[in-house]
Amino acid sequence: MTTIITKTVTRICLPLVILFSISLLLAGHNNPGGGFIGGVMFASVIALTYIVFGIDHIRSFFNPDWADLFASGLLLASLTAFAALPFGHNFFRSAVEFLHLPFFGEVELVSAALFDLGVYFVVIGSLLSVLKNVGDDK
């Protein structure tokens, strides 16, 4: 599997796919995309690098604890659920705000985007943690 072609392709793909995954996350509210899809895309490209370059090689310089990522994602998502309570709103009430920024024009801020970010982290973290553990298993 680890021919020179796959290695080169993976190397070029990696940053592009990560960027695309982030843009999917941000675009999600109005265009195709969202935290789940973005997360799966991120996880797939990391998984691809794990396979192509070998998990042990990658881990020698890049070895995050993916469990931290999914735990903080779940925490973030739960917190957004509670965020509306102090303002007297119901659980999970979302807020929408439009901002006019120079240069970007009109920017929409949605509290649900934070929830989506939580989903994004959970998807990446849990998928890669499973993958790493299965890959580690000798």
Binding site: H29, N30, V110
Partner: peptide
């Protein structure tokens, strides 16, 4: 919800 993407919303 202020979103155009119904699936995501």
């Amino acid at each position: 919800a202020g979103g155009h993407n119904m699936v995501n919303v």
